[in-house]
Design a protein around this nucleic acid. Structure first.
Lengths: 220, 220
DNA sequence: CGGGTTTATTTTGCATACAAAATACGTTAT
DNA sequence: ATAACGTATTTTGTATGCAAAATAAACCCG
């Protein structure tokens, strides 16, 4: 007999996921205080699993615990981003290097297709769709490394940078540069050239850095 | 009037620290089940802060949650180490590059002193002291990067590798190689040569890799 | 004996209760 | 009016209680 048991995740995990989403979407903005009773009511759970979830998010760095004063949504400062981006560059470079060596040919073809979509979105000035496809490409290359720890590490850092919300400030010029770098990326991947792909990805993050830090207000 | 208030950390943080120590020291061995009542009695706290601590350790990756069956000390497998080491190489390389650029001269002199101590321990075959000074040097270089996020990321990965416990299996040969690489490291640091230091650190982790994975039994 | 099923015990998951700290409020005095 | 103090309320931190799941033990039947 087949098992009918629906193994549903523990409450504190479900709650953590929802909170993560709320924070990531900006619905819970940085420095917002997390009121336990309020959140409990909204989510229909008691304080115990909620608090467990908050503790998890704290070790992830998404919220900051303030003893006897609860937790606030952590603020990603200019300095944080300055610290994170070189790390991202190094890790994305490594991921690209590994991806060039290990990815299946049909997976690379898929990335090329998404890249073409992205270019179309760029030409039509469809910002949201552009960012979505852009993100997907980076995600696929990262996953193409075949190194799950690397994927997790990059995602965790990437999430923090994303929360700094700079995207709107992208200039015509830096956007064009990013797209052309992407073209080079895909070419290097198709040629399975690890050194070149690594170099481009590192350069790409550098471009991102100037874009972001140019527009981000000092010490947010 | 000066404040006399002793701001002591919340219980769940103290508990998490103690558990981290127990796991790191091997007193709580991998795959050991964490019995809540037992631990509560040992530590003299109730289940609530203990459980919060366990959730934190779970997101850190030190323990693994098994729904309805509690938590076990996570097992660092051969594959985990295989994934982690290239990441460490990349990040330690970056840290070295930054350290060569930013470290104060007197800090570099201090590292040279510790390095000399380490060499003495090597010559006298004092394994424990060797590893301790070795660890300290890597820590100081990493911190010398001036990038706290980088320090945290490296430490978190490093802790996992350390828990795999391979150190005893180091051969005469690989030990000698590690020491000579260290000599090169310090020289490059004193010369403030970022590229060279980065390259050596990456190579150094590669040496470590062959040492570790040579001795670690498959799929622990 | 041994395999399988039922019952008892333990252990976890979640909710609630109580105490301490922090915040908000109101009162008084200047 | 406002600054400062004291009190009330809210909010967090920790402990405990109860129900469900998992494990261990007892039991039955072949």
């Amino acid at each position: 007999m087949y098992s009918n048991v629906v193994v549903r995740a523990p409450l504190h995990i479900q709650v953590a996921e929802r909170l993560r989403l709320l924070i990531d979407s900006g619905e819970l903005a940085p420095s917002t205080r997390l009121n336990e009773n309020e959140l409990c009511q909204n989510m229909g759970v008691s304080r115990t699993p909620l608090r467990e979830a908050i503790r998890s998010l704290a070790t992830e760095g998404l919220v900051e615990l303030q003893p006897n004063r609860g937790a606030i949504v952590s603020v990603v400062s200019h300095d944080d981003v300055t610290e994170i981006l070189p790390i991202m560059a190094s890790l994305e470079g490594l991921a690209g290097r590994l991806a060039a060596l290990h990815m299946q040919t049909d997976q690379i073809k898929q990335i090329r297709q998404i890249h073409n979509q992205m270019v179309t979105h760029y030409q039509k000035n469809e910002v949201t769709e552009y960012f979505e496809t852009n993100r997907l490409i980076h995600e696929l290359i990262t996953e193409g490394s075949g190194n799950q720890t690397l994927v997790d590490t990059i995602n965790s850092l990437s999430a923090k940078v994303r929360r700094a919300r700079f995207s709107a400030q992208m200039t015509r010029e830096s956007w064009a540069k990013a797209v052309s770098e992407h073209e080079e990326m895909i070419t290097a991947l198709e040629a399975r050239d690890p050194n070149r792909l690594e170099a481009i990805l590192i350069q790409h993050v550098e471009t991102k850095r100037t874009t972001i830090l140019g527009s981000l207000q000092q010490s947010q």
